[in-house]
Design a protein around this nucleic acid. Structure first.
Length: 338
DNA sequence: TCACGTCCAGTTACGCATCT
DNA sequence: AGATGCGTAACTGGACGTGA
């Protein structure tokens, strides 16, 4: 029983998302004075009655989980308090090697699995903290750690706002990376299929940055004469995600710029406008003005201003602009983040 | 109102059969 | 042998409904 399990945390495609790894070095006896209080998700602090109850038990309590780098208790503050009440000099600990952020994740998971249950507010606060330290984790992955519904985690993420430029893909509980929006990849794939119909699914997938399975779906849609982008999600109406994944229906059926939903674009622009590093430079202001031209209320006005004999030319120009924006977006994603 | 369960379509990656 | 396409499991987030 001296192995710390962190096995159900999402694996990751890269180092940034490595799950907390518990290394089993065996149980060790450590002077109590060396240990520091936990970075605990528990807001209410220790429950002394619970510690006294543990202290009154005969026999050894399970070892305390300790973050080796900081010597902070991850799991077992009540057991530590019980040992202090028993006036012990040494306590059995199991060390965890990982980042402090990962240690917090382990602490949350441990607190949700046993001992005194965390309140909803404590679990929500823990989830909010995890989604900052591990933004690439899926809602469900965070939910499973924090003991919440994935819907609650999703709501917390929404409330956190568009200001945090979150990753465009999430790591699931199976360790697989799934994009939040496959529009650009699907459009790229449909262009590649049209240009090189003999290319294999894998080849197109590599170039478009999506999986062969998605390329297969794009190709099947094209063969059926359908739009390469998936239909609106959900059973009724077009939801937020659906509108993000699909250009406006009234935009002449042409694959338009892969913009987010109107509301999201508005929020993102507001966030960008508030950033002095953009607002206070000439090129930053130029970028903001260019982005603002894509706000939804502009499209109807622009469409009405195009004379009938120029609609086809404008459509071609718009498609080229869309391509340019996609290349720009790809460049932004390749750019090293701070 | 909020948290959560269910359903759904989309996505990834794996395994396997087939092809070159 | 390696590349390919297909089927599938397991996952995702969003829409919707329900209950406290």
């Amino acid at each position: 029983m001296d192995t710390v399990q962190a096995d159900t945390l999402p694996a990751s495609g890269g180092d940034a998302g490595r799950p907390p790894e518990a290394e089993d070095q065996g149980v060790q006896r450590v002077p109590i004075g060396m240990l520091l209080p936990a970075d605990s998700p528990r807001m209410s602090g220790e429950n002394l009655d619970h510690a006294r109850a543990l202290g009154a038990l005969d026999g050894n309590l399970p070892p305390i989980l300790v973050h080796r780098a900081t010597m902070r208790v991850i799991d077992g503050m009540h057991r530590l308090r019980a040992a202090i009440l028993q006036e012990r000099a040494l306590v059995e600990v199991l060390f965890f090697d990982g980042t402090p952020e990962d240690a917090f994740v382990v602490a949350v998971r441990s607190n949700c699995r046993h001992g005194l249950p965390l309140t909803l507010a404590e679990r929500a606060a823990a989830a909010a903290r995890i989604m900052i330290s591990h933004p690439q984790w899926s809602d469900r992955a965070i939910a499973s750690v924090a003991g919440l519904s994935s819907k609650t985690v999703a709501a917390l993420r929404r409330r956190a706002g568009a200001g945090n430029l979150a990753p465009r893909a999430r790591v699931g509980q199976d360790g697989r990376v799934r994009p939040l929006d496959s529009t650009a990849g699907r459009l790229a794939a449909s262009r590649l299929i049209a240009a090189t119909p003999q290319a294999s699914l894998r080849e197109i997938a590599r170039q478009a940055g999506i999986s062969p399975g998605t390329v297969r779906d794009v190709r099947a849609r094209l063969e059926r004469g359908e739009d390469p982008l998936p239909r609106a999600r959900g059973r009724r109406g077009a939801g937020a995600r659906a509108s993000r994944a699909r250009p406006r229906e009234d935009a002449g059926k042409a694959p338009g710029p892969a913009a987010g939903p109107p509301a999201d674009l508005g929020r993102v622009l507001t966030s960008l406008r508030n950033d002095p590093s953009l607002r206070q430079t000439e090129t930053g202001r130029l970028l903001l003005r260019m982005l603002e031209t894509h706000l939804p209320h502009q499209w109807d006005r622009l469409a009405e201003s195009v004379p009938a004999h120029r609609t086809e030319t404008v459509a071609l120009a718009a498609l080229e602009c869309a391509k340019a924006w996609q290349e720009f977006a790809a460049r932004m994603r390749r750019a090293p983040s701070p």
